[in-house]
Amino acid sequence: MNALQIHPEKCTGCKQCELACSWVQTGGFQPSRSLIRVHIFDEQASYAPYTCFQCDEAWCMQACPVNAIDVDEASGAKIVLDEVCVGCKLCVIACPFGTIFFDKPGGVAAKCDHCAGDPACAKVCPTAAIEWTQADPGAWIGPFGDRVDRDYRAAEEAD
């Protein structure tokens, strides 16, 4: 099964992924509606695009009282069933990564669905910082977090 593999060290912060995702979502260019967001760590001169990790143990899915989050057999992505979703936002609260959004017209939750197996963000990324490949989608977050943490500590010690 393919997943979105993020390489934060390659990201330049250009937000082409946000533009492409919002285009898929809305047919226009509206980064505020993108389901992938580039976080700018100016402190580290670094950027990290992040979106749903498609957790095996998906808390959003477990939290949903009406079973509106389902697994798409083809892509393996957890998807929101718009017609089932009642807009209670429990999934937004449950997600530990903040990658379920609630700004879609119609009052339903929205999350990355891997564009049904051909993710637009990976396709447009000019530096291959987002790769659609067979990999553990969460593998980057640990080392990246360690680096951020280390830099903060070093800075505090230097003060």
Partner: peptide, 15 residues
């Protein structure tokens, strides 16, 4: 040099 930085929507990143 620590990193390249792009402006919005830039696919060159000369910063």
């Amino acid at each position: 040099l620590a990193a390249n930085k792009a402006c919005f929507a830039c696919t060159i990143a000369c910063g």
